[in-house]
Design a protein around this nucleic acid. Structure first.
Lengths: 337, 337
DNA sequence: TTGTAAGCGTTATCAA
DNA sequence: TTGATAACGCTTACAA
């Protein structure tokens, strides 16, 4: 193609290609005057470095991989939006890869991917970020990576997360502050990294308040509306019915609300319902849902930035916890009686 | 890195690198015996061609771009899943790029992207696929592309689509067959390519049945739950209330259902509600939603395959219409009276 | 501080 | 049908 190369830039600026390269890569030891000449030539020629050539010749490929599995639509989309935005700012591009569920397959898949296409680092979204064999592979190869919202093994590489445990803790305290003592909890999908953390926050808050939790009041869900319906049907038919139900995501909370209104229970007079995620629908159902706002897009941005900076400075792994927000709306209210 | 190169494969097979290249690229004029020797060496060395080198030296980059804007989470996720799967099968990889809303910016953005990273083709999802300046740019450059679910200009490049007009037509006929004559329609977001097509299907079916549609019964929406709520509040407070509401996506249909049940209307005895998309939640609300199932993932698969095949054969643009499915559930029933 | 020359791993050209 | 050899556009030594 007639695309402009580094040679033309060098010729126009009256310097060697190496100098152009130095300027473009922000290397030191370039006279400001030359730097300006080069930048001027770059702009007037509208020069864009060829990624393939860079990847082939150099140590960096300006390419990051975004790995996900089980694409919970909204979540992954938002992560990806954040990752793309951060990539663009840093002059990187994003390659997406869907990972097989089983962990051995995932490692093999990524190994093939990495030998075929040179990438500077990988962004691992849950639940891929907790895949032991995959992490081992990356550590062994020395491939940089960042984990988003890992469930455990927090010493394995840098990660960005929200404090799921504390968020669930705070939500539970919120319910307690409203006078609720009989609080039920709907767990998330067993495969998802956040599930145990949110449960732990709940049980910690109950214990700290000196409240007992009957095993009947901690039911399994799968992060789906349907599983929320199932959970609510069990909970609300209990002889000792809870006055508040904390579902560990919004979809399940909506399922709970649907069952409650079908049973003629008033929200929040007869039953308080809380969710987690602040998905868009949380604001339009009636009453609006009290929930936790996760900084999903920001987490991906932060992860990407961490990865890119780590590539430059090669410092030690760092972790970063982003703030969540407890969003109180109409679905929670004072306990009955 | 210690990654294995084409030279090692050539050495092991006792042929030249060019022969290995020929085998790998399925070029003709290679003796079967040599072909087998090469393939054996490839497998025993677990050789993976280096993408950057391929892109730099050759005409193909084994890289496809997936362009989207306004990430309606579920839709884009599903498209992407399909595109990735098809890419993997064809030995390609997928680079994702989020496109700026305004059309001039989009063209400039893609131009910069294409000069920086060599890609063999672009997959354009709605509404990017209807961006005139962008299409012009691609045509001018000769960059191959496929459009997914375009709204118009059907002669500009190959596309894959579902027959939105016919689907809306069929749904309207379904409602008519149940005895409904006073049928209202909730339009989608003005920016989305499907919006006019679905409206057209509705109006065509009404006209073909000899039914008049009061302008009051065709209200605007934005593909959101909230906009469905707004639309239903207008429609159901009309003096001459419709007996059926066809919302042009599921989110809006759910909004309609929420308002109806708040107003004490029985579904489907007092009001039939139909949606479009068959999103997951359509199956768990009560009653379950009658809707249209779009083959989203399949469309992206087909588009990707079309693109890859087009690259190989360089045949003329083709279009492909995938089948939709009318999914009848409990939210639609016989008209009252 | 700057420039020269040698690759990086593959495909394309062209001769055998 | 096969194989040398020269690109491809950039970065990395190393030299000046």
């Amino acid at each position: 193609m007639g695309s402009v190369t580094i040679n033309e830039v060098a010729a126009l600026a009256g310097v060697s290609t190496k100098t152009v390269s130095r300027v473009l890569n922000r290397e030191p030891h370039v006279r400001p005057e030359l730097r300006d000449r080069v930048m001027h030539a770059v702009r007037s020629l509208n020069y864009q470095p060829n990624m393939a050539a860079r990847a082939l010749a150099g140590s960096r490929a300006y390419l990051l991989g975004f790995c996900y599995d089980n694409p919970s639509p909204g979540y992954v989309s938002n992560l990806q939006v954040g990752a793309i935005a951060a990539c663009r700012e840093a002059g990187y591009h994003l390659l997406v890869e869907q990972i097989d569920g089983n962990s051995q397959g995932a490692a093999a898949q990524i190994e093939a991917l990495l030998t075929a296409v040179k990438m500077d680092g990988l962004i691992l979204s849950p639940p891929v970020c907790d895949n032991g064999p995959l992490l081992s592979l990356l550590e062994r190869r020395g491939t940089p990576f960042v984990r988003i919202a890992p469930a455990g093994q927090f010493n394995r590489g840098p990660y960005v997360s929200m404090d799921d445990r504390k968020a669930a803790y705070d939500m539970t305290r919120h319910l307690q502050a409203l006078g609720h003592r009989r609080i039920a909890f709907v767990r998330g999908h067993a495969d998802h990294s956040a599930t145990p953390l949110r449960l732990e926050g709940f049980t910690d808050a109950m214990r700290d308040a000196g409240l007992t939790v009957s095993p009947d009041w901690m039911v399994s869900g799968a992060f789906s509306f349907r599983s929320g319906v199932g959970a609510a049907e069990r909970l609300l038919n209990l002889p000792d019915r809870p006055t508040a139900i904390f579902a560990s995501n919004d979809d399940m909370a909506l399922g709970v609300m649907a069952v409650a209104s079908r049973m003629g229970l008033g929200l929040p007079e007869d039953l308080s319902v809380a969710g987690f995620d602040d998905s868009p629908i949380a604001q339009v159902v009636w009453p609006q849902l009290t929930t936790i706002r996760q900084p999903v897009e920001a987490m991906a941005r932060a992860a990407t930035t961490l990865l890119v900076e780590g590539l430059a400075k090669s410092g030690e792994p760092r972790a970063q916890l982003l703030d969540f927000e407890l969003v109180v709306r109409g679905s929670t209210g004072p306990a009955p009686q």
